[in-house]
């Protein structure tokens, strides 16, 4: 009797030859179970390698499918990276709960002092700094690099400024109210809430993050469909083989396995290519961004996806590939029965 040939169709085996497996009793069963497990693992190993080589053996088709997946995943990944970078930029100026009060050019020093004291006594205000027109001019000269131009001016065009610093987590509404009362003062020319743009940025980033997420979800659905369709074609191409395998006793799991691995590999390849595309794009942009940041006296530079990003992108993509393949297989494989 064939070893490992489990005859499920009955207890009474035909009395063809004395069965060695029969004599072994429990030991025989145990070793057969071990054989089955080893065979199972061996098949997984063989199929995973064989499907990868099958994909690499048809590089054009494989590259095209993987590229489509890469584009679908690269878009949300790129958007995500952009949002994260802007977030970093936002984090650097997060604590500036500051109001800049620009005073009219002719404001009297006594009135300015009085306003400074009044503001210092308001609740939540930590500090009120005074920048005289001369100080502002000096600062401008040293930082901007336009010193020579400034010296050509007849008079100082810069106004006096009161810098009102708030404690952290100040309410933007409260700042807005203060801004309005200050604007009614005769000596106040303009009021800028420095935190406003940070909050706007946060809101935009939140929007960007949600956009990346919804784009990611929508395009993930696309990846499922792409992989599903590719696997459907692969099933169609290997129809004869599937029928023969089913006729000689291949289980559904056995038939399914190569297609699931194919989906998995497509996902992994697509994920890796998406990471490459985003990374290359960032390297390309980084120079420009650094130059731009330099113009704003910042040493900001772009942060990429990194190896962790690669791992998660490949994992997400592989899961999507596997899922897409599973959907295609469950829909199309059961219809392929030998007739």
């Amino acid at each position: 009797m064939a070893k490992g040939n489990s005859f499920s169709a009955g207890k009474n085996r035909p009395a063809r030859k004395p069965s060695p497996a029969h004599k072994q009793g429990a030991t025989g069963t145990k070793s057969r179970l071990g054989d089955t497990l080893r065979g199972y693992i061996r098949h997984h190993r063989q199929v995973s390698v064989a499907t990868l080589f099958r994909l690499l053996g048809d590089p054009v088709q494989t590259l095209m499918t993987s590229l489509v997946i890469a584009i679908a995943l690269g878009l949300p990944a790129g958007l995500y990276v952009a949002v994260e970078n802007l977030q970093q930029l936002g984090n650097r100026v997060k604590d500036t709960g500051q109001l800049s009060v620009f005073l009219k050019l002719g404001a009297k020093q006594a009135a300015i002092d009085s306003l400074q004291r009044e503001l210092s006594n308001k609740p939540g205000v930590e500090n009120v700094g005074y920048v005289s027109p001369q100080q502002a001019l000096n600062e401008f000269q040293s930082v901007s690099g336009f010193g020579d131009v400034v010296s050509l001016l007849d008079e100082n065009p810069l106004p006096a400024v009161l810098l009102v610093s708030y404690a952290e987590n100040v309410d933007i509404v409260q700042l807005g109210e203060l801004k309005n009362t200050l604007l009614q003062q005769a000596m106040v020319d303009d009021v800028r809430v420095d935190m406003e743009w940070v909050q706007r940025l946060q809101a935009i980033l939140e929007l960007g993050r949600k956009l990346a997420l919804s784009l990611g979800l929508a395009l993930s659905l696309g990846v499922l469909l792409i992989v599903g369709n590719t696997i459907r074609l692969a099933i169609e191409n290997r129809r004869d083989e599937i029928i023969v395998v089913k006729l000689v006793g291949g289980t559904n799991a056995y038939v399914r396995r190569p297609f699931l691995y194919t989906g998995l590999w497509y996902g992994v390849l697509g994920g890796v290519i998406a990471w490459l595309v985003v990374t290359v794009g960032l390297v390309w942009l980084d120079d420009t961004v650094e130059r731009l940041a330099g113009l704003y006296q910042s040493n900001f530079s772009l942060a990429g996806l990194g190896l962790r990003g690669l791992a998660s992108l490949a994992a997400i993509s592989a899961t999507l590939g596997l899922l897409g393949a599973a959907i295609a297989v469950s829909r199309h494989l059961s219809a392929l029965e030998p007739r």
Binding site: N5, S6, F7, S8, A9, N252
Partner: peptide, 10 residues
């Protein structure tokens, strides 16, 4: 149904 492949092996 799930037993069919194992039956066919004989």
């Amino acid at each position: 149904r799930s037993q069919v492949p194992f039956y066919r092996r004989n």
